[in-house]
Design a protein around this nucleic acid. Structure first.
Lengths: 272, 272
DNA sequence: GGCTCTGTTAACCCGAAGAATCACAACACG
DNA sequence: CGTGTTGTGATTCTTCGGGTTAACAGAGCC
């Protein structure tokens, strides 16, 4: 059972690493064999035999298989660890190159810097939202109010970020959905105030509204990030809206909504 | 000057991360802008204006850009660090999944284990060859003979591997091309014997033979790896041949060639 | 030595995905 | 109220990858 599912999963993943379908299939076929001929590979992988050679050759030049030039030729996949290491390293190098190239990119600046009062931006994807969350946590000066709708969002790096913020004097308030989670969070953040949120809004308002609030972050009462989960949609996972600026409408609303339980923050208006 | 080259490099790299051409172009365009409308993006990126929307939307769901739903819509790229982190993380997760899926793959074992006497395998790509080199170094019991044709192949991880081998009692012999490199290597491997190789074979034999030997590794006198560089070929970089087994023809030849300067190894035939 | 069969390479065909264009509705603005 | 701009959808064109077939070479057999 794990056979076929892992098989297909491997093929798909390999393709996401830039391999063509035949290359991916050939590689997993060879991974299951100590070594094999074109014929054997063709039978297992359902690649037309005459095309096994091309696929295997490009795999060889990627360092993923070895070829024995006999007749018939023998093919052999490198070990799983060797293969994944090779791939991982390739993509780390690419990330580095990309960082470099994008960084030294000439800015075509037309200063369209309008006031941020009414700007509300949307972004999607847990990865991107997490990244933005981290940025907000790291740049907070005075106060962080964070409510997690899903405990899985309470990750290690986030804890570290909150601890660091706490360490530099930021007031950290964390809301959770259940007391069980509250206890766990409180355990990891002893100096923070951790509470169980009363918010009904974690579940949808109308019956056919199955959106759930994922996270909710108010930083220095001047930046707000709210994310939701839409389970029904096949494509989109986590969606978020994001606003910045003390006078921003969304921020104002969030501030009001959260006013209950917030102690007055000294000199609220002087932040940039 | 760095403008256009880095621009194109970014686009290409982004595409290697799975983005479509329009998505890649749109992202770099937005990276050069604090924020922009479809029209602006279209002008900078040379994407037809009507297709900017699709591209940006999928970028948004990848967490790479933010959208402001006003009229006209405003688009904004996340910071370079946010973007590269997001991408890197995505590929690290994929690597992990792949390792897992490939690892738990049911082996369709037909025991085709012939003797390795005459098997000579070829593999290409510096990454794969490096990986195989490491494996050989790590699994060596008694002796390692290594000759590097190119100093750039003498990397940190390789040094560590050699030191570890040395530490567990393996005799390590390293050959270099110049005395300068010899000194450097000797410095990092005090207990190893480092020598300047006399080998003429590092440069081609015939005039039109511009292949250069990259590395040459004999492990326990029972496994050999020889790699060469072919500078003229546009596609292939480093190529290698690889043989295993004490009786392997290639290994035998290598052993003979290297016999000069090798002290007799006790009980050479008893290794499997 | 000729013949056949298998292994290997290469060329070709076709369909899907993506790039480019167009047509049109909605909206903002004067 | 009309004109230009903005956003969405449908349509054509091109490219690339998957699939098939043919040609070639070599080994073994008769």
């Amino acid at each position: 059972m794990t056979d076929s599912s892992d098989h297909d999963r491997s093929v798909t993943l390999l393709q996401e690493f830039g391999l063509k379908e035949y290359e991916a299939k050939a590689f997993v076929a060879l991974t299951r064999l100590p070594s094999g001929t074109a014929k054997q590979v063709s039978e297992i992988s359902e690649i037309p035999r005459t095309r096994v050679y091309d696929a295997v050759r490009t795999l060889e030049s990627d360092g993923l298989v070895e070829i024995q030039h006999s007749s018939p030729q023998q093919f052999r996949a490198v070990s799983v660890t060797e293969a994944t290491n090779t791939l991982q390293q390739a993509y780390e190098e690419r990330t580095e190159s990309l960082r470099e190239a994008l960084g030294s990119l000439g800015r075509a600046n037309r200063e369209t810097e309008s006031d941020t009062t009414h700007e509300v931006w949307s972004l999607s994807g847990t990865a991107g939202i997490t990244s933005r969350t981290r940025e907000l946590v790291e740049s907070a000066d005075r106060e962080l109010v964070l409510v997690l709708g899903d405990p899985s969002l309470f990750t290690g790096p986030l804890v570290e970020g909150l601890q660091a913020a706490d360490g530099r004097g930021v007031t950290v308030l964390v809301g959770t959905t259940t007391d069980r989670i509250r206890a766990r969070v409180q355990d990891e953040l002893p100096t923070a105030e951790v509470f169980v949120s009363e918010l009904d809004w974690l579940s949808g308002v109308s019956p056919d509204d199955d959106t759930e609030i994922g996270r909710l972050l108010l930083a220095d009462r001047s930046a707000i990030l709210v994310s939701t989960f839409h389970p029904q949609a096949t494509d989109r996972q986590e969606q978020a809206v994001f606003g910045r600026g003390f006078d921003n409408g969304l921020v104002t609303v969030a501030r009001r909504l959260m006013a209950t339980g917030l102690s007055p923050m000294e000199d609220p208006g002087s932040s940039d």
